[in-house]
Computed example of a mutant assay.
Amino acid sequence: MSSEFPHFRDCDACSEMVVIPTGEYLMGATEEEFKGEYSGYKTFYLVETPRHRVDVKSFAIAKFSVTRKQFEIFANETNFDGKGCTVFDGKNGYSITKQVGGIQGLGNQTKTL
């Protein structure tokens, strides 16, 4: 049996997708994983513990990160307005504006998707 999960593309320009099979997985963290960590992680501890088993139905996920250009094409083709999405720059999360061309929260600056 191959250890590689099946993968596919819906079209030539589409992202390569990897199929994650149906199965039982461990979700969450253990108390030991949080010992000695920054106290700001307390909220994470409360929602990440205890580690537990979950049943997951099969799904596909992109093998590589989606670029901002790919997302812009998707948003324009589907009229996606960005509601409920944020972009994380490593320090802060920024809400995607209804105009998919920019991200709010940067003061006078705008990041283009």
Rank of each mutant, 00 (worst) to 15 (best):
E32K: 13
F80S: 04
N79K: 08
F74M: 10
S95W: 00
E72F: 10
L26A: 03
V100M: 05
A13F: 06
E48N: 12
E33K: 06
G40K: 00
A60E: 07
P21T: 12
M27K: 06
Y25V: 13
A13C: 10
Q99R: 10
M27I: 12
F88V: 04
V56A: 13
F5W: 09
P21F: 04
P50G: 10
N79R: 06
A60T: 12
S15P: 14
A62T: 15
F80W: 11
L106I: 05
F5V: 05
I20N: 03
L46M: 12
C14G: 10
S58L: 02
G93N: 11
T30Q: 10
E72T: 11
Y41M: 12
V56L: 14
G84A: 04
V54A: 14
F80H: 12
S58Q: 13
T43A: 08
S65N: 10
F8E: 12
E33M: 14
F88M: 01
K57N: 13
G105I: 05
F74Q: 07
N79F: 11
E77L: 10
E16F: 03
E24H: 08
T49M: 12
G84P: 08
E24D: 07
T49V: 15
L46D: 15
E48K: 06
A60F: 01
G84F: 01
T30I: 11
F5R: 07
